[in-house]
Design a binder for these strands. Structure first.
Lengths: 214, 214
DNA sequence: CGGGAAGTTGATATAACTCAAGGTAGGTGG
DNA sequence: CCACCTACCTTGAGTTATATCAACTTCCCG
């Protein structure tokens, strides 16, 4: 994990997400570690023992099969936390999708942070289980719809920024990039979304999307 | 949640799984609630506020889509715990697969159980994320192999008891019952497994299964 | 022993994948 | 500042794994 650590990088002024609960922010303020696009934050098998809060940018959490197939289990945007795991080692990889700043909170052996971490773990658990429904039982258009609705809800705007590539979206939804691309085109032709550019989608009919995604 | 509560039902003598950490077993012993096959333990939307330990039998946790499609996110066997959730209401259904006994631990507002619950939540999170890889990126035979390997590891025996139907297995793996059935046949023909009866599988080549399942 | 649910097997349909070619856009260096 | 270059994305044609529909079989359980 090679990070460019700096406590002097200025905070992104357009942090959309709420800050951590006050209890986590107390004490000395954590410095921000900077990760360039595509760089690794931690790897499967590495020693765990910290958790992370995204200050700006975006992070993907994933696993690999022996032959290179990849499943992204989660994306984390500004304001969100990740990295706490069962046991002493990481079961997943975490990578910066693009230039990303992260606050690292080390779990020192003494302090008991379970009270703060439990709600975060439970929220992650619910998220993962809801994602299971999408991957197990929904078709391509429903998967993309569910993904877009999720992004709208997390960003709180009708114009959604997608920090990740089509490949990332495919690996998150269990689809190929071609299928993701075709579904975007179909949604565009139906007038449900508008593609401002490759990484920016305007949601025109959120109700339709919502219905598709469940 | 209509349970036949009884503190007098004798514990199943063949509990394969380890008991809860001592800290959870301290204090007055919880009575066992009995649920007949197919009965509901809790429903989506119900008030949460307890967690559950399986004493005997098996439980399925699932969600439904509007049109009835079902995704089982987890099975819980004797010794395992479930039911803790983010927020005040359940996001999932829990049902007894067959005659099942459960200890219910109510979370009284005063006591802070986060220390005990965090490891359980994290384990569940890891499990769910690993299941995401199976549903997102593995084919039918790999999914069934992963499922069987998981059952072998949880039961600790080469002869695996499957308390659930083919339908349950399908809804857990994101497959139809026909596909599950065909894969069982293929594995049988390859000499990887032997079907003692519908609910009992002998694992003949665990290494082969293991390799398939990842 | 009979009946019904659960499971298996077969034939066909289809959604998504694969392979391939072309297009677009963003970034770099001349 | 423009043109090129390369990544990324889109679109098309053909293939394939799994779903669907249907018939048959087996296993329990009463």
């Amino acid at each position: 994990m090679q990070a460019y650590t700096s406590s002097r990088i200025s905070l992104s002024p357009h942090l959309a997400q709420p800050a951590l609960p006050a209890t986590l922010g107390s004490g000395p303020v954590q410095p921000i570690s900077f990760f360039p696009a595509g760089s690794e934050i931690y790897a499967q098998g590495e020693k765990a023992g910290a958790f992370y809060q995204v200050e700006f940018g975006a992070v993907r959490i994933y696993r690999l099969l022996a032959d290179g197939r990849r499943q992204i289990s989660a994306f984390h945007l500004a304001g969100e936390t990740f990295g706490f795991e069962a046991g002493a080692t990481h079961h997943f990889f975490a990578e910066a999708i693009n230039a990303t700043g992260v606050r690292v909170f080390r779990l020192n052996a003494g302090a008991d942070m379970s009270h703060q971490l439990l709600p975060l773990a439970l929220k992650g658990l619910t998220r993962a289980q809801e994602h299971l429904l999408v991957l197990g039982r929904q078709n391509a258009i429903e998967r993309v719809a569910a993904f877009l609705v999720d992004m709208v809800e997390r960003q709180g705007l009708r114009q959604v920024e997608l920090p990740m590539s089509r490949m990332d979206i495919g690996d998150y939804l269990g689809l190929t990039i071609e299928t993701v691309s075709r579904v975007f085109t179909r949604l565009k032709d139906k007038g449900v979304i508008r593609l401002l550019n490759l990484r920016s989608v305007e949601i025109l009919k959120q109700d339709v999307l919502q219905t598709m995604g469940e």
